[in-house]
Structures are given as C-alpha cells and as structure tokens.
C-alpha cells in the first residue's frame, strides 16, 4: 500500500473535494470526517443531528434524513445544514442522490418504487421499480437520467425530469451492487454478484463491453476523472470479512492494469480529481491510498 489514513470510526463512502486536497469519509458513528490528503490529518468533522439516518455522500452533496422524514442537505464547507425538504422523505427507505436541487429516493420493502422530489420538496413522480431491495442507483452526469438496480437482477433507467421509463434492462443474470456513469456520461458501468463489470452505452442502453477477472463479487466501482480508468472493488461470497482485490481497468481496452489488496468487502473506491490516486474504504478504520498512474 502506498499510504493509509487511520480514522477514529469505521468509514463507508468516500469522496474527494473538487480540488483534491480533502478526502471526505462517511463514518458509521454518524459523522462525516474530512482529511487533508497531503498531511493525512483530520481537517473537519460534521456530526449529524440527533436521529439522522440514511446519510448519502455524492461528490459535493451530503444528505441525511431526519426522524420525521425530512431531508437535510449539508454544506461541506461550513458543516451546517444548507437546505431542508420538510417531511419530503416520509415513507422512503433510501435517498440516492440529488441533482440541481431535485432529490431521488427509493421506497418499499419488497416492491420497490423510485420517487423524485423537486427543490421545494414537492413530488414530481413515483415510478415502480423491481423487487427485493435496491442494490445500486446512479444519476447521469448531466442529470438527465437516473438508473436503479434491484435484487431481482433487473435495472431500470428513467428520464429524471418526468419519470418516463427509458429502458428496462432485464438481460443481466444477477443483481448489480454498484452503478457508475463515466464523467462524460457516455458509459454506465454496472457490476455485482457474477464478478463481471458490464459497460453499457448510456445512449442505447446496450452492453458495449464486459471486463472479467475480478476474483470475487464486486461491491464498488469508480471511473477516474479523465474517464480512462475504472476501479472495481471486491466482496467475497463467503463473508464480508474476507480479504479481496481492487482492480484498475483500462476503460478502452478492458485490460487489467493494476491489482491491489483490500482487507475486506470494499465499501467505496474513489479516484482523486487528477486521476493519479485511488482511495479505498472497507467499512473499517483504515483508508488505503494507491498510486494508479503509470
């Protein structure tokens, strides 16, 4: 390992700040910690409010859900709640991100629905999704499409403005555990239980390429900022606690270019904005850094 940061609490989702100087980590003790990447020291800690659940960290946005179902968006610079959607999330199970002030959520236990709220908290649409829980969700970089993968091995892409179903993708054999769009929005990477990375053309929603070689299931994906590389992080079929691999792929050729070790199921993998560094969290108190360039 090139370097690591020790945290006071177990870390799940990671995100770099836009300038790459800070690494934000969503911690399982109900706090967001931000580390100085150069020095490895803590720069800021944001403690959620009492009763907040469902924290979601997408690159620049942190959202939590209060006990009454209202949603809070936090300003990562000031550490304060910047916006509240009153009682907007009631009956919702999971928040999966926001774009231009709109928020997308999933609801339901076995029969999943996806719900979109506008910036005032007004419902824009509710659409039926698959069965058995949501494995992963993603929003396209231009905000025009949202995609959800459910545990019944189906995926659906919708128009994010009106909920129109763009494509039901039912050709995959297994559930997908992570979905990530390439930074230019051209590709959607999907991976999960069968150890294969599927690269979809995000215009036609057809499979363009498949990357095989991960030795276990895949729990986390990330494109580098320049779109040239893709990282996939493993998840052992036998137990989350088994050591796994993080693979770095060349997106064009589909070749494996680097392989790193992770101590257990990869919770999150992210590239620095200059695409030189990958940071990996595994739900433990250690964040690993790897040089991926060269």
């Amino acid at each position: 390992m090139d370097r690591k940061i020790a945290s006071d609490a177990n870390v799940s989702t990671l995100a770099f700040s836009a300038d790459g100087k800070l690494l934000h980590g969503l911690c399982q003790d109900g706090k967001l910690r931000s580390w100085d990447v150069g020095a490895g020291s803590i720069r800021q800690t944001i403690a959620f409010e009492e009763g907040d659940t469902e924290p979601v960290l997408s690159p620049a946005v942190l959202t939590t859900m209060a006990k009454d179902g209202s949603l809070k968006s936090w300003d990562l610079t000031t550490g304060k709640v910047a916006r509240r959607l009153p009682a907007a999330g009631r009956h919702s199970r999971r928040v999966f991100g926001s774009v231009d002030g709109s928020v997308f959520l999933s609801m339901g236990g076995s029969e999943i629905k996806v719900r979109a709220l506008d910036a005032t908290g007004k419902e824009r649409f509710v659409v039926p999704s698959g069965l058995g829980g949501v494995g992963a969700m993603a929003i396209s970089p231009d905000g025009s499409a949202i995609v959800a993968a459910t545990y019944d091995a189906d995926m659906r892409a919708w128009n994010s403005r009106n909920g129109e179903l763009l494509r039901l993708i039912d050709e995959l054999p297994v559930a997908m555990f992570d979905l990530k769009f390439s930074p230019d929005g051209r590709w959607l990477a999907a991976a999960g239980a069968d150890r294969i990375v599927y690269i979809y053309d995000a215009k036609t929603w057809k499979i363009s390429r498949k990357f095989s070689g991960q030795p276990e299931m895949i729990s986390a994906l990330a494109f580098s900022a320049d779109g040239s590389k893709l990282a996939s992080g493993g998840f052992s079929e036998l137990t989350q606690k088994r050591p796994v691999k993080v693979l770095i792929w060349d997106v064009k050729s589909g070749q494996k270019v680097r392989t790193f070790d992770a101590s257990q199921r990869v919770a999150s993998v992210v590239f620095s904005p200059d695409s030189q560094l990958a940071a990996v969290s595994t739900g433990t108190k250690v964040i690993d850094f790897w040089q991926v360039a060269g």
Binding site: G109, S110, L131, G132, G133, G135, Y151, D152, A153, L172, P173, V174, A175, F177, G192, A193, D194, M217, E237
Partner: peptide, 12 residues
C-alpha cells in the same frame, strides 16, 4: 410470510 431476497438471486 415474506423474507428478504438477498444479493444472490440468479435468473435463468
């Protein structure tokens, strides 16, 4: 009674 689907379902 229902139970969770879990991550291991495989079609076909």
């Amino acid at each position: 009674s229902t139970e969770v689907l879990g991550p291991f379902f495989r079609k076909g």
